[in-house]
Simulated scan of single mutants.
Amino acid sequence: MTILLDDDDLDRLPAMEMALAAMEEAFLERDQGRLVSPPRFHVPFDTLGNLVFTVGGNLGSNPLAGFRVYNTFHGRADAQLTAIWSAGDGELQGIVVGSRLGQIRTGAIGGVAIRHMSPPSAKVMGIIGSGPQARMQLEAAASVRALEHVRVFSRSEQGRKTFADEMSRALGLRVEATDSAHAAVDGADIVVCATSSPSPVIDAQWLKPGVHVNTLGPKTVDQHELGSDVAERADVIATDSCEQAGSYHAPFFLSGSSSEGRLVELAAIISGKIAVRPSGAETTLFCSVGLAGTEVLLASRLLTAAQAC
């Protein structure tokens, strides 16, 4: 019997815990050549928008195959569908409908980057943005680091105050709304930028040495929430998929800069092939671009867990 899950179903599961484990597995499989993860592709519908597909899965003893599709009609990306098959026998495992799967998956990828790239002793986190993805990034970060103080800034005063109140209660953390981006990131051990801003939201001079930064928002040369100054400060710059970074409709935001050739795969860091903090004081940057196949592995685990409930 095919299982169908929606956002409400995912909210009843320990989804972030499962997602962090699934992403660790996915990146190790990518490093070993067992993750099928081509860049996403867009199917245009004239001026109406696009259907956007990420297709992938994994190889090995229990191979999976599937896809996620969402639309950009009327600027929407919340109406999403993910389908998963057992690649061994072609059986349809199930379908997940809604935006939560993608949010959890991206949050967990950010959490895995924080686990392997940020200072192990990190206590203070600064967040720019107060939307669903900022929430997932904080939930993931709090799962992998013993955070004590979180500061958040977004353009909406009510949005950042609501974020602070709700996430304080949800995670049992001190989450503070600040009046500026500078105040949010000043002295932070970890900084997350999760905005839709087409221009840089922070200045590299605001960041303390040894900080780790995650960027999730726009990352093309014509629209980027981080400037090249942050990349220039970083000793290590990683992404979840160099292929995806190179397939944007416009060049990646580091194209043509002195940092362009320094981009490495997060999978190589997780597998231990690349050392991130040999001296313990390195500044690091993770550019999240969306690694295909990861949502398939996560959806399979969620479907199995839901079936067991």
Rank of each mutant, 00 (worst) to 15 (best):
G217C: 06
Q244F: 02
C242K: 14
S241R: 03
V230P: 04
V211R: 04
P209H: 09
R262C: 00
P200Y: 06
G246L: 06
E260C: 01
G246H: 06
Q205S: 15
A194Y: 10
L254T: 00
Q205M: 07
S196L: 14
K208D: 12
G210P: 07
L226A: 07
E260I: 01
S197K: 08
A194S: 15
G256D: 10
V191N: 11
L254P: 04
H224Y: 01
P251D: 01
S255L: 02
V201P: 02
P198N: 08
D240S: 06
R233G: 00
V211Q: 11
S196D: 13
D235I: 00
T195R: 01
D229W: 06
P200Q: 03
S196H: 04
V221Q: 07
K219R: 09
R233T: 12
A245I: 03
V236F: 08
S259N: 12
A204G: 15
P218Q: 02
T195N: 05
D203P: 00
G261P: 09
A194K: 11
G227L: 05
V213I: 15
D229E: 15
A250M: 11
P218R: 01
I202E: 13
A234H: 02
G210I: 02
T220K: 00
H224A: 15
H249N: 11
A188E: 12
A188I: 14
H212K: 12
G210H: 08
G246F: 05
H224L: 00
